[in-house]
Amino acid sequence: MARADLAALRAEQRDLAARAVTRDALGEVRRIGGVDISASRFEREVHAAIVVLDWPSLEEVCRAGATQEAPLPYLTGLLGFREVPAAAAAWAALERKPDLLLVDGQGLEHPRRCGVATHLGVTLDVPSIGVAKSRLCGTWPELPEEAGAAVPITDRGEVVGTLLRSRLRARPIHVSVGHRVSLATALGWVRATLRGRRLPEPTRRAHDAAALVRRDFLARRG
């Protein structure tokens, strides 16, 4: 892409980040949605799934998936533009909407404070939390090995997330604010939806659902 196009996308990210609400602005949570994207950097299509779970039982209420042609190539730091349209299409197809989204990806833990969880949350104006499996930016102190240990992630002097050890000696996960949720509340919801696994139930189930959306698309295409 041309340098001017990249600069425009980065400027749009900064605008989205400025619109993100980083305090609690969510009502009663009766349903939680997990969001995941299945997409290879070498494929033209993006496959999204949202699985809606009842709270507190975490029983599935409904799910929806969508496959769309990626509007952009795979560009680190700009994945929201590639992935959010498909996720928004899956949202539109849901029979029942969740009150809170846990998104497989970063929120404010992003160089321009606009990972996919923030991008999607602001676009839909839905409370959202980023739950990522790897680092995008920031540093943190040493994290203890025991389950439940957590340390702050900072970037350029700002706390942008929390590194959480969800299971004993498991690789940690990155929790960050997406939109309309404080960091403390985001961490609380992630802890509350862990069921003895590394990932919280909403994003774990969404990961499996997105893989099915991708598999079904490839089967139809032959």
Results as ranks from 00 to 15, higher is better:
79 L>F: 12
123 T>F: 11
52 V>F: 00
115 G>N: 04
133 K>S: 12
46 V>P: 06
138 G>M: 07
160 V>H: 02
145 E>K: 14
172 P>S: 10
138 G>F: 06
169 R>D: 14
192 A>L: 12
104 D>F: 02
15 D>A: 15
136 L>A: 10
32 I>S: 01
133 K>Y: 11
174 H>D: 10
46 V>H: 08
64 A>H: 08
99 D>E: 13
133 K>L: 12
1 M>A: 15
71 P>T: 10
94 L>M: 11
28 E>M: 05
122 V>A: 03
104 D>S: 05
16 L>M: 10
125 D>A: 03
92 A>L: 08
107 G>C: 06
187 L>V: 15
87 A>V: 08
59 E>I: 09
183 L>F: 06
96 R>W: 06
135 R>V: 13
176 S>Y: 05
94 L>D: 07
75 L>R: 08
168 L>V: 10
161 G>Y: 01
21 V>C: 14
74 Y>I: 10
18 A>S: 14
86 A>P: 06
9 L>A: 12
141 P>D: 15
170 A>H: 15
151 V>M: 12
201 E>S: 10
135 R>L: 11
91 W>M: 04
11 A>P: 11
133 K>T: 07
8 A>I: 04
82 R>A: 08
187 L>T: 10
144 P>I: 07
64 A>P: 05
126 V>A: 09
104 D>W: 01
143 L>T: 10
168 L>T: 13
37 I>C: 01
173 I>W: 06
186 A>H: 03
75 L>F: 12
68 Q>R: 15
182 S>R: 03
63 R>Y: 03
184 A>C: 07
55 W>H: 09
146 E>F: 09
158 E>K: 03
165 R>C: 08
105 G>N: 05
32 I>A: 03
6 L>N: 11
78 L>G: 11
171 R>K: 15
87 A>H: 05
115 G>I: 04
173 I>N: 07
79 L>T: 11
15 D>Q: 15
197 R>Y: 15
124 L>V: 02
89 A>L: 14
83 E>S: 09
123 T>V: 07
164 L>S: 09
99 D>F: 04
93 A>T: 13
184 A>Y: 06
14 R>Y: 14
200 P>D: 10
206 A>N: 07
93 A>V: 12
98 P>H: 03
45 E>G: 03
185 T>A: 09
82 R>C: 06
65 G>H: 03
114 C>V: 05
38 S>F: 03
12 E>S: 13
1 M>W: 15
20 A>I: 04
55 W>R: 09
171 R>I: 05
